[in-house]
Deep mutational scan, measured.
Amino acid sequence: IQIFEKGDFSGQMYETTEDCPSIMEQFHMREIHSCKVLEGVWIFYELPNYRGRQYLLDKKEYRKPIDWGAASPAVQSFRRI
């Protein structure tokens, strides 16, 4: 998965294949504004440590949070399923 600090795949980008319990600790990001799921299925969580509201992401590109069903870019953790 590739995660971006700004919408439309702009700003700082990080790519990982590992679960992330805290985007702040692992990537020094506060929010995720866009992402590209390159393979597999992932779950975004609103809070750290896989808690809070969940969003299921299939293999595709998400230009903004509304594309994965979120009203805001408040994603604090994610993991692959």
Rank of each mutant, 00 (worst) to 15 (best):
K36M: 11
E39M: 09
E18K: 11
R80K: 15
E46R: 04
V41D: 09
F9W: 08
R53P: 03
M24F: 06
H28F: 15
N49Q: 09
G7V: 09
D58W: 01
P48A: 08
P73F: 15
G52D: 01
I3Q: 00
L38C: 06
I32M: 10
K36R: 11
D67F: 07
V75W: 05
A71G: 10
L38Q: 05
K64D: 04
F27M: 11
S34M: 01
M29S: 13
K6F: 14
G69L: 11
S77C: 02
E46I: 01
G7N: 03
Y45R: 00
F27Y: 09
R53D: 13
N49H: 09
K36W: 15
F9P: 01
E18M: 06
I81D: 15
V37W: 01
K36I: 07
R51N: 02
K6I: 09
R53W: 02
D8A: 12
A74R: 15
K6H: 08
K6Y: 07
F27G: 11
I43T: 14
Y14H: 12
Y45C: 02
E46M: 03
I66W: 10
P73W: 14
R51W: 04
W42Y: 13
W42R: 00
D8V: 12
M29N: 15
L38K: 08
E15L: 05
Q26D: 14
F27R: 11
M29F: 12
K64E: 06
I43V: 09
G40L: 01
E31G: 11
D19M: 05
I81C: 14
R79G: 02
D19P: 03
F4M: 07
S72C: 05
K36H: 09
E5V: 13
K59A: 11
E46Y: 01
D8C: 14
R51I: 07
L47T: 02
S10R: 08
I32E: 02
E18G: 12
R51F: 03
M29E: 14
E39T: 09
S10Y: 13
N49D: 10
Y55C: 12
F44Q: 01
H33K: 04
G52T: 00
Y14N: 13
F9A: 06
T16M: 13
C20P: 00
D58N: 01
T16L: 13
Q12R: 11
W68K: 06
I3K: 00
L57T: 05
E5M: 12
A70V: 09
R79V: 01
R79E: 03
S22M: 05
E31F: 12
S10D: 04
P21E: 08
A70H: 15
F44K: 00
E15D: 07
P65N: 02
M29D: 12
T17P: 14
L56K: 03
R80T: 02
Q76S: 15
F44V: 10
S22T: 05
M24E: 06
W68P: 02
T17L: 11
S34W: 00
P73D: 03
D58S: 11
Y14R: 09
A71V: 11
R79T: 11
M24L: 10
C35H: 01
P65W: 08
E18T: 07
G40P: 08
S34I: 00
F27W: 12
G7L: 08
H28D: 12
K59M: 04
D19L: 04
R53Y: 04
E18L: 08
G11K: 14
T16F: 15
P48E: 06
I66M: 08
K36N: 07
Y50N: 01
P73S: 13
Q54A: 08
K6L: 06
S22F: 07
E15W: 06
Y55R: 13
K60G: 11
F9K: 05
T17N: 08
F27Q: 11
Q54R: 09
D19S: 12
V41W: 04
V41M: 12
F27E: 11
D58K: 11
W68V: 06
D58Y: 06
S22H: 09
E61M: 08
Q12M: 10
C35E: 00
D8L: 14
D19H: 15
Y14G: 12
L47C: 08
D8F: 13
E39D: 08
I66A: 07
G7R: 13
A71P: 15
W42I: 09
F4L: 00
V37Y: 01
Q54K: 05
E5Q: 15
I43P: 00
Y50P: 00
V37D: 03
Q54F: 04
Q26F: 07
F44L: 10
M24R: 09
Y45W: 06
E46S: 05
S22C: 11
I1G: 00
D67N: 14
P21Q: 11
C20H: 02
E5D: 06
R53I: 03
K59E: 02
G52R: 01
I1V: 13
L56W: 13
M29R: 12
S72P: 13
Q54L: 04
F9T: 06
T16A: 11
I1R: 00
E39N: 14
I66Y: 03
W68L: 07
R30L: 07
T17G: 09
Y50D: 00
F78I: 03
R79M: 02
D8T: 13
A71W: 11
Y50T: 00
V75S: 01
V41P: 06
G52K: 01
Y45A: 02
I1A: 03
P48Y: 03
E31D: 15
H33M: 12
Y62E: 03
A71Q: 03
Q76H: 15
H33I: 09
M24K: 15
W68S: 10
I66S: 13
M13V: 08
H28W: 13
Q12F: 06
K64S: 02
E46D: 01
E5H: 07
K36S: 11
L47F: 13
Y50C: 06
F27S: 10
K6A: 10
I32L: 11
R79I: 02
G52H: 00
Q12P: 11
R51H: 11
I3H: 01
R79L: 02
S77K: 00
F4W: 06
S22G: 08
R53N: 03
I23R: 02
E18F: 09
I23T: 07
M24C: 08
G11S: 13
S22I: 12
E18V: 10
E5N: 06
Y55M: 03
K60S: 10
V41H: 09
M29A: 13
K6C: 04
T17A: 11
R51G: 13
I43K: 04
E5S: 07
E46T: 04
